[in-house]
Design a protein around this nucleic acid. Structure first.
Length: 686
DNA sequence: GTTAGGG
DNA sequence: CCCTAAC
């Protein structure tokens, strides 16, 4: 759409992104975006509602986080950016499907400020099917305004985050225009190239905090025009960003479904307003403004008080690469998680009509699925097209004292969020398992060309160690606890996150070496060679997702009270998970058949003598799980399947040795169980 | 140091 | 895999 455009002087999105990512900005113009050939289009197009917000998030992070360009005249710029990101995250949460479990929702509702409508409208949980952000962008039915607003006042649970408004001003600050002309059809979606402002401010009822944020402008160059996407084409969201309060106990998000009811919402293709106001009220609506702590919560909804038992401030992120011990410091946690749905049709499958993608060279073909980086190659297209589909944001846990202000909560969340993608992240390019370090090479030279096997192309987000900025502004010094070391230690040495490579290569990248133990002819297990480099399963999530590696800096609020219990965080780190290979299972089974259960040390010595990474406790545990595995239905089993034959032997041996106490006086112990052992064999003399 | 079990 | 009681 025409008005999506912005001042032409701006850089293209790829330039922006490359720039913000620190990918040789200098070369960008020449090698990346300057020429028509082999042009890499890295970016995201705002095709869908979710994508749009996702992109915004990405953009925000890139802009404010990675580059740390906390601009903005006023001092709150930092918070602003964070808040912005936070809000955007929340915004994406809207993608939740209707009818989804309560606990799985986040901020499903949001309000949009439709143009002239000065007040922010509140859109109660609108199912994706019926309504989606995308369509929202098109415009809200003015006729709906009233009823919508109605919901705003609807008694509901209090909102911890309450009324955090996020105004996104799109375009050249054409807010007024949008406001003034509700019917201004701007299109359904934010166009790449639009610039927008985020203004976050606390709601009117929010008395605890009177914060007002004016986020700096974030702009993306337009690289392609986005055509309106018919609602019919809009499918379910592909990704969800969950931002909510989770209760460890029931795994719910702290509050029950708000009273807000889902109501069909038929967006009208108008309101081209480029301003979006998000109101994170639905779920966490606050009742009594001045209440604090648990009182903030309206219990009418049966929701538990969020702040209950809150005593410490706690922020924690967990990454799949970093299996640090999970610590539960509270029963209720506030979590921000970025999930991704499974099913989702590729945009490219959508009917041609109305689709947004500009087939031209500059188009960024986005396909969101499984949060992977997908490379699109079109035989005839000389351009290399690929896009980053999403970030995987680790879970965040934030714990605040119940006396903490809402504002501090917001800050905490912001801190946590930005900590993840905040300072010091650099992007790495991995091709065929190897990092492409030379930034000066052209894509073609690097082997990233249309003809190359782009399936092996991946990206990494790594902490830029040199960028580890101490702690950002600590608004709440009081909340800062002295234990950042803890965090550091947790993710240091053994944690192989420095190079967590995530590629969409189907082939196992070098780093992801499978290390099945070797089994010699004697059936003995020998120790794997390089346990150091391996990134065991958990380390390579979905193998394709882009994982944001956190910077070392945890931030002032990400403090964890020194917990005496968690002493191990310093010295010991949980060992990496090393699934038993079939060969190992085989050896184990064989040993147990012979030695029986209860003689794990012997089993270890006998069959795993050289497998240093397998302790007899491990073997014992494994046997335990094997027995369990063997006793459940196949479809319930997970992991590398163990041959049924082995499982049968496991059961057999287990049964046998259960009857024949294996640990009897060494003398003439029990007769070893052989494959053909008869479980009914008479007991050996005691 | 080993075992056995719960976590 | 971790943690520990119990031996």
């Amino acid at each position: 759409m025409g008005n999506c455009g912005n001042s032409g002087q701006e850089k293209t999105i790829e330039e922006k992104i490359f720039e913000t990512c620190g990918i040789s900005v200098d070369q960008t113009p020449d090698h990346i975006t300057g020429s028509d050939e082999n042009r890499i289009l890295l970016g995201v197009i705002l095709q869908r509602h979710i994508a749009a917000f996702d992109d915004l998030i990405l953009a925000c992070f890139l802009r404010y986080g990675i580059k740390e360009e906390r601009r903005g005249a006023h001092k709150n710029s930092v918070e602003d950016s964070k808040l912005c990101a936070f809000e955007l995250l929340a915004a994406v949460a809207d993608g939740n499907e209707k009818g989804q479990p309560i606990d799985d929702k986040a901020f499903n509702s949001e309000s949009f400020d439709h143009g002239s409508c000065a007040e922010s409208a509140f859109i109660p949980e609108i199912s994706i099917q019926e309504h989606n952000l995308l369509s929202s962008f098109k415009g809200l039915p003015q006729s709906e305004n009233d009823s919508i607003l109605e919901h705003t006042s609807e008694p509901a649970s209090s909102d911890v985050l309450k009324n955090i408004d996020c105004d996104i001003k799109l375009g050249d600050g054409d807010v007024k225009n949008a406001n003034g002309n509700p019917n201004c059809k701007v299109g359904h979606s934010i166009c790449v190239g639009d610039s927008f402002n985020c203004k976050v401010e606390s709601g009117p009822e929010m008395r605890l905090e009177d914060e007002k944020y004016q986020i700096g402008e974030l702009s993306m160059a337009k690289t392609t025009s986005v055509e309106p996407i018919p609602d019919a084409l809009v499918q379910k969201h592909l990704n969800n960003v969950k931002l909510g309060i989770r209760d460890d106990d029931d795994n719910s998000y702290g509050c029950n479904k708000s009273s807000t009811k889902i109501r069909p919402f038929k967006p009208q293709p108008r309101m081209g307003n480029r301003r979006i106001r998000k109101m994170l009220t639905s779920k966490y609506r606050k009742v009594a403004p001045k209440l604090k702590g648990c009182e903030l919560y309206n219990t009418s909804e049966g929701m538990k008080s969020f702040y209950q038992y809150r005593k410490r401030i706690y922020t924690r992120e967990r990454f799949q690469q970093a299996p640090f011990k999970k610590r539960k410091l509270s029963d209720h946690r506030f979590s921000v998680a970025y999930d991704q749905d499974t099913s989702c049709d590729s945009i490219s499958n959508l009917p041609e009509k109305g689709t947004k993608i500009d087939k031209s060279s500059s188009a960024v073909n986005v396909e969101r699925a499984n949060g992977k980086v997908k490379v699109h190659q079109k035989p005839k297209d000389p351009h290399v097209k690929f896009s980053i589909k999403s970030f995987k944001v680790p879970e965040l846990y934030i714990e605040l004292a119940e006396t903490a202000s809402v504002g501090s909560l917001k800050r905490a969340v912001m801190e946590a969020v930005t900590t993840i993608l905040g300072s010091g992240i650099r992007v790495g390019v991995v091709l065929q398992g190897k990092k492409v370090r030379d930034d000066n090479r052209t894509l073609q030279q690097a082997g990233i060309s249309e003809g190359s096997n782009l399936d092996t192309l991946g990206f990494t987000l790594e902490p830029c160690l040199t960028h580890v900025s101490p702690s950002k502004t600590a608004k709440k010094p009081s909340s800062v606890l002295p234990c950042e070391e803890d965090q550091e230690l947790l993710r240091s040495p053994a944690t192989p996150m420095i190079d967590s490579v995530i590629s969409n290569a189907s082939v196992d990248p070098p780093l992801v070496t499978k290390c099945d133990a070797d089994v010699d002819n004697n059936g003995f297990i020998s120790s794997p060679q390089t346990p150091s480099n391996e990134l065991m399963d958990g380390s390579v999530p979905e193998s394709n997702a882009l994982v944001a590696v956190p910077s070392m800096n945890v931030g002032p609020l990400a403090v964890v009270p020194v917990n005496p219990k968690s002493k191990r965080s310093e010295l010991s780190q949980r060992r990496i998970r090393r699934p038993f290979s079939v060969a190992e299972v085989e050896a184990l089974v064989g040993a147990v058949e012979k030695l029986g259960t209860g003689r794990w040390r012997d089993v270890k010595i006998g069959a795993f003598e050289n497998a240093d990474h397998r302790t007899y406790v491990d073997l014992k545990d494994k046997w335990k799980t094997l027995v369990h595995t063997a006793s459940i239905s196949p479809h319930q089993r997970r992991g590398e399947p163990v041959p049924q034959e082995l499982l049968d032997r496991v059961l057999s041996a287990h049964s046998y040795w259960s009857q024949h106490q294996s640990k009897q006086d060494g003398k003439h112990s029990v007769k070893p169980l052989m494959k053909t052992a008869d479980p009914h064999e008479e007991t050996v003399g005691a």
